[in-house]
């Protein structure tokens, strides 16, 4: 700071231009904060309101005018829990989602590893096939499968539905795990081989510990996909309905408080799971879409 043009002394009144710029910056910060707040409210308020309904008595739910704070009455939820078919539907939903989660990873992750680590004839064809599934309204596949399932005895079964949900979730699992495996330098595996590991040992001791959080995240993702799916569930199950199928089919007949309690029960686990994997959400999408 020697021999430069003198700066205005501290405390000297800034010029109009600088004052304007400072005002503008301050106004911009406020504007951003206000907009962000509004957008957050837009997302959160509807969820809050359905929870208010779920935690109000049935008469409050259909009353007028409505209170915006819940009375924390358990009657709606208790009614929902005791309603015929709900318990079974809930259990079915959990089981279908769990099978979907396991199948997606067990089938998807090896393919992801193959895509990440090998060059082989047909690799591109497989990639394109996987990507193609995304440009396809997959729930519609439930229609022909409903016919096929009758022939092989998978109709109205949890497993049959889980297969369709796996079809929804598995392409993601392939792409996500491929990117996870690509994130582990091949050199690490090679180093393990030179240090005495077989291919399997190197995978278990080196690769798996490094990718397991990401694999867990994509498993959770598969769970949520299945948990939330409505169309295929409604088409493929009749007696063994999942929660979404149950709610859909009782929309016309069930009272309002049952719907709201059902929606709350549907939303909460998905939100918790999503919170658990939030760190991976953007990374997964960023890579899965290239």
């Amino acid at each position: 700071m020697t021999a430069t043009a003198p700066l205005p002394a501290h405390g000297a009144a800034p010029s109009d231009e600088i004052a304007r710029a400072l005002d503008l910056a301050r106004a911009k910060r406020w504007l951003v904060a206000a907009v962000v707040t509004i957008l957050c409210l837009w997302v959160l308020v509807p969820i809050y309101l359905v929870l208010v309904n779920a935690l109000s008595t049935p008469s409050e739910v259909s009353g007028w005018p409505k209170s915006f704070v819940p009375s924390f009455a358990m009657e709606s939820l208790a009614f929902f829990a005791g309603y015929r078919g709900v318990a079974e539907a809930l259990l079915n939903s959990v089981m279908v989602a769990a099978i979907t989660m396991v199948l997606s990873i067990v089938i998807g992750a090896p393919a992801g590893y193959a895509l990440a680590r090998f060059d082989f004839a047909g690799k591109n064809a497989f990639r394109i096939l996987v990507l193609m599934t995304r440009a396809f309204p997959l729930p519609l596949l439930a229609l022909p499968l409903a016919v096929a399932y009758i022939q092989i005895g998978l109709d109205d079964t949890i497993l049959g539905l889980a297969f369709v949900h796996t079809m929804l979730a598995m392409p993601f699992a392939v792409l996500i795990t491929a990117s996870l495996f690509m994130g582990v330098p091949f050199e690490l595996e090679e180093a393990a081989w030179t240090l005495g590991c077989t291919r399997l040992q190197a995978f278990v001791k080196v690769v798996l510990p490094l990718v397991s959080p990401g694999i867990a995240a994509s498993a959770v993702f598969a769970f949520v996909v299945s948990w939330n799916e409505v169309f295929a569930a409604a088409v493929l199950t009749i007696e063994n309905r999942t929660l979404t199928a149950f709610l859909l089919q009782s929309l016309n007949v069930s009272p309002l408080h049952l719907k709201f309690a059902g929606a709350a029960v549907l939303v909460l686990p998905a939100l918790l799971f999503l919170f658990a994997v939030r760190k991976y959400l953007f990374a997964m999408w960023g890579i899965a879409n290239r």
Partner: peptide, 27 residues
Amino acid sequence: YVFTIPLGISDLAAGIIWLAILEQNGF
């Protein structure tokens, strides 16, 4: 995170949520 919350919400649940707001005696 808040912005991405709806990603975890089923379309059925979303429909019911807005039903709670827009129905006759709704919010």
